[in-house]
């Protein structure tokens, strides 16, 4: 990796800022220096799923996303996982083929009858 703090510029980098010209290059380097590195950012993003992110960090995150579409995707995907994981219990019958035996069902029904009675 070069000495500069952040030198992505791969052809077709879809980030908003991607060293496409002199100004963008300066901005990318500046933002790369003054916001958390991606390795740290993904930890922070995970933490933000469990507790609110401080305002200053939210601002840094937004600025970081300008130069890094990958961290932005990572955050979106954490939310994706969160959203689908919450729905998982209600779809457990589609996820698994384990058999819920009919005698167990009957036993539970008998218990329920006793309880209601």
């Amino acid at each position: 990796m070069p000495d500069e703090p952040y030198n992505p510029s791969p052809i077709g980098n879809p980030s908003v800022l991607a060293r496409r010209n002199w100004l963008q290059t300066k901005l990318v380097i500046f933002i790369g220096k003054h916001t958390p590195k991606c390795r740290e950012m993904v930890r922070i993003l995970s933490q933000s799923m469990d507790e609110p992110m401080p305002l200053m960090m939210r601002i840094k995150k937004r600025i970081h996303f300008l130069i890094c579409c990958w961290c932005q995707r990572y955050e979106e995907q954490l939310r994706y996982i969160h959203e689908t994981a919450r729905q998982f219990p209600e779809h457990a019958d589609e996820a698994s083929s384990a058999i819920f035996h009919s005698d167990t069902k009957e036993r539970i029904k008998r218990k329920l009858v006793e309880q209601a009675g």
Binding site: S96, A98, F100, K105, L112, V113
Partner: peptide
Amino acid sequence: TIQSAAERWVDDHGECLYRFALI
């Protein structure tokens, strides 16, 4: 009525609950 509803729950949702619990 509650009893018959509860019995229907076992048929309709028992499988789903069991599989989730097992996972």
